[in-house]
């Protein structure tokens, strides 16, 4: 990937974050500044953005006039609140009884090793995140992994690398296609200008 697109991506992320903060700031006005609104606010942020960033915790604590660490204390108590942005391809490893018996933990470990992140975290490029879930409802296919919306049944440790590689190849393909289109467009523009 060229340096330019990388820069584009990081400035894009920055703009996204800025938009998120502004949006949350507006939404906070709908809530009273009382402590009882803490969990509803956290749920609103979680629902809208799928994670609660440290900077938004600060914002919530300012709104309710309580310590930031008090907000964090409540948020970290509940499993429904996440502190990492979800990856583009969220990997959900099933830990239900059947998958557990069939070695779901080994699959999880494999994903953790291959992606070099722990369960509950997101890769630095925000491509993948790993999550452990209880039963996804197709125990006959155990052990099961759900990536995005796709269910991968009968998983094996050896299949993990292939799955990840598949997404990476797909991404590179998309990037090449985009570059090609951009080049074509440039060429067309140049032709038009020439005429």
């Amino acid at each position: 990937m060229s340096k330019k697109t990388h820069l584009d991506e990081s400035s894009n992320l920055f703009a996204q974050e800025e938009a998120m903060l502004n949006d949350i700031r507006c939404r906070l006005k709908d809530y009273s500044a009382e402590r009882r609104d803490l969990i509803p606010i956290l749920q609103m942020i979680q629902e809208k953005y799928a994670y609660i960033a440290p900077i938004t915790i600060q914002m919530v604590s300012d709104h309710l006039n309580i310590g930031a660490c008090e907000v964090y204390s409540v948020a970290s108590f509940y499993n429904q609140f996440k502190f990492n942005p979800p990856g583009k391809h969220p990997v959900k490893v099933c830990m239900g009884t059947a998958c557990h018996v069939k070695g779901g933990d080994i699959i999880l470990e494999n994903f953790e090793r291959k992606l070099e992140i722990k369960e509950g975290k997101t890769t630095p490029d925000r491509e993948f995140s790993i999550e452990r879930v209880a039963c996804v409802g197709c125990c006959a296919l155990a052990p099961v992994v759900v990536i995005g919306e796709t269910v991968h049944g009968n998983m094996a440790p050896s299949k993990v690398e292939g799955l990840i590689l598949g997404f990476q190849i797909e991404k590179e393909k998309q990037a090449r296609l985009k570059e090609k289109q951009a080049r074509l467009k440039e060429k067309r523009d140049a032709d038009e200008n020439g005429n």
Binding site: I66, G67, C69, Y72, S73, F77
Partner: peptide, 9 residues
């Protein structure tokens, strides 16, 4: 107000 707290569960 506290500057430290319990976190996690």
């Amino acid at each position: 107000r506290p500057y430290l707290t319990f976190a996690g569960r």
